[in-house]
Design a protein around this nucleic acid. Structure first.
Lengths: 155, 155
DNA sequence: CGGCTAATGCAACAGTGTAGCGTTTGTCTG
DNA sequence: CAGACAAACGCTACACTGTTGCATTAGCCG
């Protein structure tokens, strides 16, 4: 759900980076994905577009995009990062992690009002709200394999 | 901050597990830590107590504790799991991840009132609220090395 | 005590991410 | 347009986290 599919090359150039094939392709892939995708998924998408996808270069490209505010990094449930493109909209929404297929979804509509007062000494960088469960395209009720579930969130 | 430092052996036996040296030692370490610690930290603590700490056994022991509701798994910022002991109190609080030292703190006092309505189709398992920044024992203001920071959480 | 099985420990492996370094290639200047 | 400089690439090798298989050990129960 890219709000406005801006020109990747222009965005990259605007940040003072060199406009390379990998960068524009990766950013374009992220824009098209519309949800945070893993390094692997990006690689597959690059394959489909016939763009080289060296593993290391891909990592560095994604890191570059993140450090230049063109992408965001979300921790996935399988200890792999997910990346999603950032237009010029604020990235302040929750994420949903599917326990079954491992995909991550942005919950744009969810703007939690977190009234948080941190204990003294803690300096806040950012907050992250994530939900875990089963996504619409995965079968089954709540899984009951690994211990007990807690179907409650807020008191 | 273990509410009541119950006897690890008794807790383990109560779940129908065999009371072994590794298990009791690991659970005891978790109780003493009072915050989610990594597999590595557990290993170091076991060393200090003169208990064997085979890597694989440690992983399996921790997983066993988690699957029997004696411990909780928290995703760390460095893609390593952190584990903390669970007495009989509910584990419904936020976590603070220090960007510098990587430690994770339980924010017991923080009971966020999340009024979340998931889009239809999503089935919720659990929710997690995490904060990232600098902990009291780490130096410096908010780091400014990797891109721009967002010092705001809630609108 | 004796036996059954859970739990252990060892080795080997898989996936994710990083470091070093020589080569390619944008981009800028003349 | 040509040349040069540095950013970006791509390769190899590596580190770390976590897993699988399997033979061995050791709780627990009779």
């Amino acid at each position: 759900m890219p709000e406005r599919p801006q020109d990747p090359a222009a965005l990259i150039a605007a940040r003072g980076g060199r406009v390379t094939r990998t960068r524009t392709a990766v950013l374009s892939v992220l824009f098209d994905a519309g949800r945070p995708i893993s390094h692997d998924e990006v690689g597959a998408a690059l394959d489909a577009r016939g763009v080289s996808h060296d593993r290391v270069t891909l990592y560095r490209t994604l890191d570059w995009l993140v450090s230049h505010d063109l992408a965001h990094k979300v921790a996935g449930p399988d200890r792999a990062w997910r990346f999603n493109a950032v237009g010029d909209e604020e990235h302040r929404h929750a994420h949903f992690h599917c326990d079954l297929c491992g995909r991550v979804f942005c919950l744009e509509s969810l703007q939690p009002a977190i009234a948080a007062t941190l204990p003294s000494g803690f300096r806040l960088g950012r907050a992250e709200l994530s939900f875990h469960g089963l996504c619409p395209s995965c079968p089954g009720p709540l899984r009951s394999d690994a211990g007990h579930n807690r179907n409650k969130i807020a008191p």
